[in-house]
Design a protein around this nucleic acid. Structure first.
Length: 727
DNA sequence: CTAGGGTTAG
C-alpha cells in the first residue's frame, strides 16, 4: 500500500537531501538517541544514491540492504522524522530486518512501539522469535496475538508449528492443531506439512500418518516429512515402505528426501539398497551435495565399510561438524575406537569446535577402548568444556567409566549430576550390573523410584542383567513381573534375561516352558540364552534344539556354532564337534579370533592367541611358564572342555595357557610394579579355563586383575572373582 | 515473509 506521505511530512516536500549535520537535530527532536557519525554517512550515501525519495519501496530496499543494527537505527530515525512510524509495511520490514541481523530485542522494541499490529506485523515478530530459537516466546507472542483478536494466517502457523516441534510439546501441538482447523487452515499445504513433521518429531508418527493421509495434495515435502518421521522413530521398515509408495505415486525424490531414505537404510544396515541408492544419486547428479555425502558416510561407516566412509570424509575440503560426527561415530561403532579417538584429537588440534554429539561419540569410543587413563582424560575434557552439564554427555561418561572398569568413577559422575533422567539412572544401573553388583543396582532402582523418575524398558534390561550377573534369580523374577505395573511391554531382551536367569540356575525345564509361553516370537537372544544354559548344564538335546533355532534365525553368527561345539566338547561328543567344524567351513565361517588388550601406563597393547610378535616376547613366555609351573604346584588342573577342536590333550593344554588374556596378564606382571592392578579387555567371553587360572594367579602374585569380557567385568582378587563364577 | 534432512547417551 503506497500512501502518499509527502503532504504529511514537511521535510520531504522538496525532495531535499538531509545533510549530515541535520540528522542529529532531527533525531534529537524525536527523542531518538543518535548512534554514530559513520551511520549518518551511510544514510547520506544511500540517499545520495537515489535522490527520488518517494516511496515505501525505497525505504524497503534500504532496510533489505542493511548489514548492521546502526543502519536500521538510522532508517528508523528517518521514518520517525518522516512520521512513518505507523506505516505497517515499513515497520514490519524493519522488524524482519532486525531479526535477520539477530537483533531480536531490537525487533521486539520496534514491535512494542507499534500500536495496532496487523497480521503481517504479528507474523514478523513471531518469525523473529522462531528464527532466533526462542520458541517459548514464539508461542507466547502467538497467544498474545490471538488475545488481541488478530486472526493468524497461513504464514503464522508454520512458525508456531516449528516452535512446537522444538519444544516437543505434544499437548500444545494438539491445541494448536485445533486452532488451525478453527481458523480454516485445515487444508493449507504448508500448515499440514508442518503438522506432519511436528507430530512425527513428538514421537507420534501414527498421528502424523493420519494428517498425512488426509492431505489432498502430497508434495515431496509431505513425503519427506512422513518418511523421516518413521525413520526418526525407529520404524525404518515403515519409512522404506512409504518411500516405495512415494515412487508409485511418481513423486521424484530430491536430495533432502534421499537423506531421510539413506538414514532408514543405515538404521536397518541395508548396505545393498543403500549402495543402489548411491548409484541413483550419482545418476541424478547429486553426488556433490555435501549433506548427501554425510548420509552416505554414515551409511558406509555403520555397515562396517569405514574405508569407504573415510574416503568420503577425506574428499570433503572443509567437513562440517556433522560430517566429523558421522565419521567419528562410524569408527566408534565398528571396532575402530582408536581411529575415532584419534580423529577427535585431530579435530581439537585443528581448532574445529566439537558439539555435544562429537563428544558423545568420542566418549563412546573411549568406552569401547576400555582404557581408564583415556576415560579420565575424556572426563577432564568434558569438565573443561561447555558440555560439563550436558545430560547426554554425562550419561555417556557414566557408561564409559563403567565399561572402563571403574564403577566408582561412574558413580562420581552420576552423583555430580543433580538433574537425572531415566536414561542416566539406567546407565548407572547397567554399570552396576556389568560389574556384578546386583544389589547395588536394585538399591539404586529403589532410590530412583523415590524421585519422580519412572523406569522404562531399558531400566529393566539393566536390572535383569544385573540380577543375571549376580545370580539373583528370585529378585530378577519379581522385577520381570513388576514391569506390567509400569505398562512396559517386555521385549526379547527382557525375555532372554529371564531365560538366562532360570537356565543358569539349572531350571532348564522352567526356562523352556517360559519360552513356550512368550507372547512374541522368541528371537536370537532368547535361544542364545537357552543354548548357553544348556552348555553350562551339559544338556545336549535341548541345546541342539536351541541351536537349530539359532542357525535358522542367525546363520552367519559364528558364536552360536562355537557354543554348540563347546556343548558337544563338554559332553565328549567329538564326532559332533567335528561335524560343526565341517558345517562352519561349508558356510564359510571362521571362529572369531580372540584377542586381549592391556593398558600399561596409559598405552594399550593387544595380544592374540599365542601371540609372539611383541619385542618382549621371550620375557612374556618365560613369565607364562613360571606362572604355569606355580599353578601346577598348587594343584591347578586345566579345564580342557571349552576348546573348539578335538586336539590331543597336550596341544589343548598348551593352547589354553597361550590364550590372549593369559599373555596379557604375563605381560602386565612383568611391566608393572608389584601390587599394581592389571586392566585387561577381551573381545570374546572369558573361557572357563582362563577364568579359573586367573583367579589363582591373582592370589599367587597378590594382584587385583580386572578383566572385561564381551559381556561383563571380572574383578579377580585373592583367588576369587567378583562374578562368583557366574557369567 | 511460510514447510522436509543428516551426526545422537542407557
Amino acid at each position: 500500500m503506497a500512501w502518499n506521505f509527502f503532504s504529511l511530512s514537511p521535510l520531504t516536500t522538496k525532495y531535499r537531501k538531509l545533510t549530515t549535520s541535520e540528522i542529529p537535530t532531527c533525531l534529537a527532536l524525536k527523542g531518538v538517541k543518535y548512534i554514530c557519525s559513520s551511520s549518518a554517512i551511510y544514510l547520506e550515501h544511500s540517499i545520495n544514491r537515489d535522490c527520488c525519495v518517494n516511496s515505501d519501496s525505497y525505504y524497503a530496499s534500504l532496510i533489505d540492504n542493511s548489514t548492521h543494527k546502526r543502519h536500521l537505527d538510522q532508517i528508523h530515525s528517518r521514518l520517525l522524522v518522516l512520521g512513518l512510524q505507523h506505516n505497517g509495511f515499513l515497520m514490519t520490514k524493519l522488524v524482519n530486518g532486525s531479526s535477520n541481523l539477530a537483533q531480536i530485542f531490537y525487533a521486539r522494541k520496534l514491535f512494542d512501539g507499534f500500536y495496532f499490529p496487523d497480521v503481517f506485523m504479528w507474523n514478523a515478530i513471531i518469525r523473529s522469535y522462531s528464527r532466533n530459537n526462542m520458541f517459548r516466546d514464539t508461542i507466547d507472542m502467538y497467544r498474545w496475538m490471538r488475545w488481541t483478536g488478530v486472526h493468524p494466517d497461513g504464514f503464522t502457523f508454520p512458525y508456531v508449528l516449528k516452535a512446537c516441534t522444538e519444544l516437543l510439546d505434544f499437548g500444545l501441538s494438539c491445541l494448536i492443531h485445533g486452532q488451525i482447523i478453527r481458523y480454516g487452515f485445515g487444508s493449507d499445504a504448508f500448515v499440514q506439512n508442518g503438522l506432519v513433521a511436528l507430530y512425527a518429531k513428538c514421537g507420534r508418527v501414527s498421528v502424523a500418518k493420519v494428517v498425512f493421509d488426509g492431505l489432498y495434495h502430497r508434495t515431496i515435502v509431505s513425503w519427506t516429512s512422513i518418511i523421516s518421521g518413521y525413520a526418526q522413530n525407529g520404524e525404518s521398515m515403515e519409512a522404506l515402505r512409504m518411500f516405495s509408495q512415494m515412487r508409485n505415486a511418481d513423486v521424484k525424490p530430491d536430495w533432502i528426501a534421499l537423506v531421510s531414505i539413506l538414514r532408514a537404510y543405515t538404521d536397518v544396515d541395508d548396505l545393498e539398497q543403500g549402495r543402489s541408492l548411491h548409484g541413483c544419486i550419482i545418476k541424478m547428479g547429486l553426488e556433490d551435495e555435501s549433506d548427501l555425502l554425510i548420509s552416505l558416510t554414515a551409511l558406509y561407516a555403520k555397515c562396517g565399510m569405514v574405508m569407504v566412509a573415510r574416503s568420503f570424509f577425506d574428499q570433503m575440503k572443509t567437513p562440517n561438524v556433522i560430517m566429523w560426527n558421522a565419521m567419528i561415530s562410524g569408527y566408534a561403532k565398528n571396532g575402530h575406537a582408536e581411529e575415532a579417538v584419534h580423529l577427535f584429537h585431530d579435530m581439537i588440534s585443528r581448532n574445529i569446535k566439537p558439539d555435544s554429539v562429537t563428544v558423545r561419540s568420542a566418549v563412546l569410543a573411549s568406552a569401547h577402548l576400555g582404557s581408564l587413563k583415556l576415560a579420565q582424560w575424556m572426563d577432564d575434557y568434558v569438565s573443561n568444556s561447555n558440555f560439563g552439564s550436558c545430560i547426554f554427555v554425562n550419561t555417556a561418561l557414566i557408561d564409559m567409566y563403567a565399561k572402563c572398569g571403574s564403577v566408582e568413577f561412574a558413580r562420581m559422575v552420576f552423583d555430580r549430576n543433580s538433574d537425572k533422567d531415566v536414561v542416566m539412572w539406567s546407565a548407572m544401573i547397567m554399570g552396576y550390573g556389568l560389574h556384578g553388583q546386583g544389589w547395588e543396582a536394585i538399591n539404586l532402582y529403589a532410590a530412583m523410584k523415590q524421585t519422580s523418575v519412572f523406569p522404562n524398558d531399558v531400566t529393566f534390561v539393566g536390572l535383569l542383567n544385573a540380577c543375571n550377573h549376580s545370580g539373583l534369580v528370585k529378585e530378577g523374577w519379581k522385577l520381570f513381573h513388576s514391569m506390567k505395573d509400569f505398562e512396559i511391554e517386555p521385549r526379547n531382551e527382557h525375555y532372554s534375561c529371564v531365560v538366562d536367569l532360570l537356565g543358569r540356575a539349572g531350571y532348564l525345564g522352567q526356562a523352556c516352558a517360559f519360552i513356550m509361553k512368550m507372547p512374541i516370537e522368541p528371537g536370537v537372544s532368547v535361544w542364545g540364552a537357552l543354548l548357553s544354559a544348556c552348555k553350562i548344564h551339559r544338556c545336549v538335546t535341548l541345546g541342539e534344539y536351541a541351536a537349530k533355532k539359532l542357525f535358522s534365525l542367525d546363520p552367519y553368527n559364528t558364536g552360536h556354532y562355537v557354543q554348540l561345539s563347546n556343548l558337544y566338547a563338554s559332553s565328549r561328543l567329538w564326532d559332533r564337534v567335528a561335524h560343526i567344524r565341517v558345517l562352519m567351513r561349508e558356510r564359510g565361517l571362521n571362529k572369531d579370533l580372540g584377542y586381549s588388550v592391556i593398558e600399561i601406563n596409559g598405552k594399550l597393547q593387544a595380544f592374540h592367541v599365542g601371540d609372539n610378535s611383541h619385542p618382549m616376547t621371550n620375557e612374556i613366555f618365560n613369565e607364562l611358564q613360571i606362572l604355569e609351573r606355580r599353578l601346577k604346584e598348587i594343584g591347578f588342573v586345566p579345564h580342557t572342555e571349552s576348546v573348539l577342536h578335538d586336539l590331543n590333550y597336550e596341544e589343548k593344554e598348551e593352547n589354553l595357557s597361550f590364550h590372549s588374556e593369559r599373555i596379557a596378564v604375563a605381560y602386565g606382571l612383568i611391566s608393572t610394579a608389584p601390587g599394581t592392578t592389571l586392566r585387561i579387555t577381551k573381545n570374546l567371553r572369558a573361557c572357563v579355563n582362563c577364568h579359573s587360572a586367573i583367579k589363582l594367579i591373582s592370589k599367587l602374585v597378590e594382584r587385583e586383575i580386572i578383566v572385561r569380557d564381551a559381556n561383563r567385568f571380572h574383578h579377580f582378587k585373592d583367588g576369587l572373582c567378583s562374578c562368583r563364577d557366574y557369567w
